[in-house]
Amino acid sequence: MKPQPSPLRKRRVHSWPVRICHWINLLAMIGMVMSGWGIYNADPIFAFTFPQNTTLGGWLGGNIAWHLAVMWLLAANALFYILWSFFSGHFRRDFLPFSPGSVWRDTVRALTFKLPHKLGQYNAVQKLMYSGVLVLGVLLLLSGLSIWKPVQFSGLVWLFGGFDIARYVHFFAMSGVMLFVIIHVLMVLLVPKTFVAMLTGGKKISTEESADE
């Protein structure tokens, strides 16, 4: 008897909380970075400034207002994502485990274009990057509080080694997040189906394809 082909079914690669938080994060980070560049321009710590047309707010007061407004959106989104990921098992299931050996192996595979991509499964490099950007997010929060309210959060300022050091930490943590975003976008360009999955949650695949992918 000739076997029947496997029926198509909808497999959710990314659940709705992940997708919603992802796109809110995108908009919030654009607002945070552009308003942050405007704040930086008012008192730069390096010998360069950002073009005025890449900033948000128009002037220092506007930059700060936008930065604080978007900060609350980003904080609420991050809190929801962290709580959901913890209680749903998303962190444990998708971001762990990984080791230096597995990161090195997958890095070599990626550089030699031999790293297979499976929708819904993170390789060791991705796990390291996503875990790292969460750490950078914590650094941005703590250093940002130190810069925003140095008197009220004097203990945090002391932990960072002073107000000026907190500004450097904030700048480099932001730069690290931007590097993550650039790498993330490049990976999406290399594997366009990941963009579709983040929009729709998944695609119709057969049972046999699910085993391979």
Rank of each mutant, 00 (worst) to 15 (best):
G62K: 07
R93T: 13
E208W: 02
S102T: 15
G38C: 12
G120P: 10
T49P: 07
P17N: 09
R105K: 14
S6N: 14
G58I: 05
S210T: 07
H67C: 02
R12C: 06
Q121W: 06
S143M: 09
S102H: 09
F86S: 00
Y130C: 10
F86E: 07
W72K: 06
K127C: 11
V196P: 00
I39A: 09
R12F: 13
V70G: 00
G62S: 03
W72C: 09
V196Y: 12
K193R: 10
F153Y: 15
M129V: 10
G57D: 03
W104I: 15
L159S: 09
F160R: 05
F46S: 02
A211I: 11
V181E: 02
L186Y: 13
H22L: 12
L136M: 15
S146N: 03
K127H: 15
M34L: 13
A28L: 06
L111R: 09
M187G: 03
Q52N: 12
L134T: 07
G201K: 02
V125H: 02
H22P: 03
K118H: 13
P97G: 06
V169A: 08
W84C: 04
W23A: 06
F172I: 09
V196M: 10
A211V: 08
W59E: 13
Y122M: 08
A78N: 00
W158Y: 13
H14I: 01
P116N: 04
F98L: 08
I165S: 08
R12A: 06
K118Y: 14
Q152N: 04
A65I: 05
F160D: 02
V108I: 13
L27N: 04
M1Q: 14
W104Q: 08
T107P: 01
S146Y: 00
G38Q: 01
V13P: 00
M1A: 15
Q152W: 14
R109E: 14
I182A: 15
Q126W: 06
A78Y: 10
L140P: 03
G120K: 03
N123A: 14
V191P: 02
L136G: 06
K203H: 10
G202C: 04
K204I: 01
F195Q: 10
F195A: 15
I20W: 15
W72E: 11
N63C: 13
I45E: 04
S175K: 00
F80L: 07
V188P: 01
G161W: 04
K10A: 06
R105M: 05
L119N: 10
L128K: 01
P51S: 04
L190V: 05
F180N: 12
L136H: 09
Y40C: 03
S99F: 11
L134C: 10
L145N: 13
L115P: 03
Y130R: 02
L159A: 15
P17G: 13
I24W: 10
D94C: 09
F172V: 10
G120H: 11
V18Y: 08
A197K: 00
G57Y: 00
N77K: 05
S88C: 11
G61V: 02
W72L: 07
